[in-house]
Structure formats: structure tokens, C-alpha cells
Design a protein around this nucleic acid. Structure first.
Length: 247
DNA sequence: AATTTCATCAACCGCTTTCTT
DNA sequence: GAAGAAAGCGGTTGATGAAAT
């Protein structure tokens, strides 16, 4: 699971450590300690750089290094420390005896990052749910306290809003009635549905067809826009078809 | 059974900090 | 205080085994 051993341009060995190298390093450090990592490999008979020796000792050969699975307590502590300090791996390592910064970092990236992400997602979902609940509650309070005719139809709190959308969706699903007209007056209880009684598309066509520039301007689209326009026109009732092919 | 994709983790690299002169 | 060396740190890489297709 590590890089294959090789020698760089300076003749220094890189990549995976062999058991023989491990033994040499362990033996040297046990006997002389590691006061100077730069010089150590030369005295220990290793073709490695000091940095590589240090890393190998700290992360793998040091007898204090604890191997094996992380306990729930260690996981909890890492999550807590990461929350408090961010990616301060060496700081975390000081709080977790036997664990190295490199190991904690790897463990974070492979396990705990996902745990944290799922916790954050769950929290966001809960917040969204409680927001929705608060909104519903507010709406219910408003409807009960304010006379309905004082609430604008366009308001999200309007008691009509849900009825309107129901009518729209019902109408769209009906084959017999084309979706070009909207009959809101059926659900409106304030008798001011004049605006909604008139099919807006027809109204626009009649008004705009008086303008000699209308068809010229509106046919002067990019291809896909013109195509869309053509599709819309084709869906008009038959008595409006002449507008599609002006003489 | 063969191939591809994913997860893991040891080791590397480059930058920063600390120590020594 | 300045400069260079050494140590420390964190991000990234890449080989490998496991799981999925």
C-alpha cells in the first residue's frame, strides 16, 4: 500500500521501508537516541534522508505508537478537537496518546469527515423541518387572525394560494380543456376576478396584432426561440390559427 | 473470472516554525 | 538581529486490497 522503493538522483532511497531498514533504524535509535535526524541515517547505515527516518520512526517504529482501531472515545475526541481547532493534527496527537498526527489525519479523511458531513446534513434537515413548521404555524395564526380579504392573493400567506395551484394543476391534467385559459373566478370569493377571466394570451395577441411590426419582430428570433414560439402558436385554439400564418 | 472503482494509509513534498550560531 | 540548518506540520500522492460491476 506504499510507493515501491527507488533511489532518487542523489542516491537516497525512497518509498517503502524494508524490514532490514526498520531494524537498523530501531537499533540505532534505541542505542543512541535521535538528537540529529540529518546525521542519523549516515551513522545508522541507511541510504535515507533524515526526514524520511524521522517520519518512519515517529509514525511506525516508535514503541509508543498505538496500532489498531480507534475507540469511540478517541473518535469523539477527534471530532471535538477538529471542531475546536480545525486541521491541527499535531495538536490533536498530543491529546491522543499513542496516535500520531499522520494517523489522525488519515483517520479523519477516511472515516470522520463522512461522520461530520452526515451530522451537518442531518442538522440542516432538522432546521429546515422546524423552519417549515414555524412557517405553517405563522400562516395558520395569520389566517385565523386577519380577515381573508385583507390578505393579498400574491402573498404566500394568502388562503387562496393553495386553491389556485390546485385548480391549475387539475386543469393541466385535463385533456379536454386546453391550458390557455384560467378560470380563477370559480374559487375566488371576492368577485373581483375580471382580470383572471380574460385569457391573457388571446388578449396579448389581439392587442399586438394591431401593430404592423408585431409579426416581423416576433419571428425574428434565434432558431430555438422561434421553434418554441411556433409550438406555442400551434397549441392555440383553431380560431387563433390565422395569426400563425398572417396573409 | 476479469475489470473497474473505491477506500485505505504509508510516505513524500513543500512550506513554516524553531533552534543554533 | 540575521542567516542558515533542523525539525515540525499539513496537504497530497500513489500502491494495494476490497468491493462492486
Amino acid at each position: 500500500m506504499v510507493r515501491a522503493p527507488y533511489f532518487d538522483e542523489n542516491g537516497l532511497k525512497k518509498g517503502a521501508w524494508s524490514p532490514d531498514e526498520d531494524e537498523k533504524l530501531k537499533a540505532y535509535v534505541h542505542k543512541h537516541g535521535h538528537c540529529n535526524w540529518r546525521e542519523l541515517p549516515r551513522f545508522a547505515g541507511l541510504s535515507r534522508c533524515g526526514k524520511s527516518c524521522r517520519l518512519r520512526w515517529i509514525n511506525y517504529l516508535c514503541p509508543d505508537v498505538k496500532r489498531g482501531n480507534y475507540s469511540k472515545e478517541e473518535e469523539r475526541l477527534i471530532l471535538q478537537l477538529h471542531q475546536e481547532h480545525g486541521n491541527k493534527w499535531s495538536l490533536m496527537a498530543t491529546k491522543l496518546p499513542g496516535r500520531t498526527d499522520n494517523e489522525i489525519k488519515n483517520y479523519w479523511h477516511t472515516h470522520l469527515k463522512k461522520v461530520k458531513a452526515s451530522k451537518v446534513k442531518k442538522k440542516q434537515q432538522n432546521e429546515a423541518i422546524s423552519m417549515k413548521e414555524r412557517e405553517t404555524e405563522m400562516k395558520a395564526n395569520l389566517i385565523s387572525e386577519v380577515p381573508s380579504h385583507e390578505i393579498l392573493e400574491s402573498s404566500p400567506f394568502s388562503p387562496l394560494s393553495s386553491e389556485i395551484s390546485t385548480v391549475c394543476s387539475n386543469q393541466e391534467s385535463t385533456q379536454d380543456s386546453p391550458p390557455t385559459t384560467f378560470k380563477f373566478q370559480e374559487t375566488s370569493n371576492n368577485n373581483n376576478g375580471d382580470f383572471w377571466d380574460v385569457p391573457f394570451l388571446v388578449d396579448n395577441l389581439e392587442a399586438q396584432s394591431q401593430d404592423p411590426m408585431f409579426f416581423h419582430i416576433n419571428y425574428d428570433f434565434e432558431f430555438d426561440q422561434a421553434d418554441l414560439f411556433y409550438q406555442v402558436m400551434k397549441e392555440l385554439p383553431e380560431n387563433y390559427q390565422p395569426y400563425l400564418y398572417p396573409s
